[in-house]
Design a protein around this nucleic acid. Structure first.
Lengths: 200, 200
DNA sequence: GAAGCGATATGACAGCTGTCATGTGCGACA
DNA sequence: TGTCGCACATGACAGCTGTCATATCGCTTC
């Protein structure tokens, strides 16, 4: 019997996934969580084989959860189930040590199948995404990424400088670097391009 | 027996919702569709009582589907199930004549309950959203909205002017109007604020 | 130890943006 | 018929942005 937990913040999807899992006779649902912290607590308590989770969750992302599992040397393995099909996300997920990455676009039959493979120690990636694992590298540095995020929110260079403790000119330098790395014409376009690739 | 159809483009969610509906003894699932056009075809064929659908779908949005039902004078009623909790969306949905608007955040028990109410002719709105029906009006004119969308994509005033056939100064005037109506500090922030409210 | 690199910074300049004053033409409406 | 509001436009100006050249400091690497 494979012991599974679901961590997903949207109640409807969480319970619908539970219903779907409930149809499988060889998989047992041992708990559900609505945010990262609760998920972590329940994992410690139940030690499930597999945790189904989204990337974006309040409190802790699915990727942070995966990294935590590795750090705590638990056998619980993380299976990401998400809408995000941006190239950078899969890469970061793999680097975080997740055991599987499924798109919500895929057929539901893939879900139970993926759970079984992950429980057996295999690594599972949505076929639509497999080719993306080798796609473009994120060219942005941490600082460029951070400043780009602030610019995206509508802060001007002065406000970003205050926020980060950098000089105003330095802010413009970093944004310039990001803009030119991304082949954009201005910071807005740069932020949009980076977000589309999953680099923000 | 209430006859229900599901129109949802994400396969996993579609089938999970089907599993959830399958648990109810007084509700019968008569079909599922992955896009708006297929949904329309199946509705004509099966004439379900209620269609569960998302707003964003390839081909035809859930709102367009609702408007179509009204135009074709069908008794089939549309129940929107979506993630979008932006004020403008609910308003637009109600104007399109949908019979219900549920958030995916809500508990799954609310789903069957909402289906029953909608089938009985009632109008259902997620309680989290009820107060938003009277929330702020969209202050933007069509032109301001359009230019704001282009600005959001990273075009500068010159490029927007070319795109729209307006003079460059006029573009800046419209954006200025949008910025000041929204209380923003620049076009980026204005676009962000408008999008958060569901006005873009 | 020298060379190279990344993070941080400054200054300068052309071009873009946000703001305001002001004007024209057109349709709506009392 | 006059007036109001809206769409569209111009010009001007301060401030912001994108770009480039250049410099310092600390860390890595051969």
């Amino acid at each position: 019997m494979i012991r599974v937990m679901i961590a997903e913040d949207q109640a409807l999807l969480r319970e619908a996934l539970a219903a779907l899992i409930g149809l499988e006779s060889d998989i047992e649902l041992v708990g559900t969580a609505a945010d990262g912290a609760e998920a972590h607590r329940l994992i410690r308590q139940h030690e499930p084989d597999v945790v189904l989770t989204d990337i974006e969750m309040p409190g802790m992302t699915g990727l942070e959860l995966a990294a935590l599992m590795k750090r705590e040397q638990r056998r619980t393995r993380i299976l990401i189930v998400t809408t995000f099909d941006r190239p950078g996300y899969l890469r970061r997920a793999l680097e975080s040590g997740v055991a599987g990455y499924l798109l919500k676009d895929g057929p539901s039959t893939a879900l139970a199948e993926a759970v079984r493979k992950v429980a057996a120690g295999e690594r599972v990636i949505s076929p639509e995404l497999a080719h993306q694992a080798w796609s473009e590298d994120d060219p942005l540095s941490d600082r460029e990424r951070k400043l780009l995020r602030l610019a995206e929110a509508g802060l001007d260079s002065g406000a970003i400088a205050e926020e980060t403790g950098l000089a105003r000119g330095t802010v413009r330098n970093y944004l310039h670097a990001a803009i030119s790395k991304l082949g954009a014409g201005n910071r807005i376009e740069a932020a949009r391009l980076a977000r589309e690739k999953g680099w923000l």
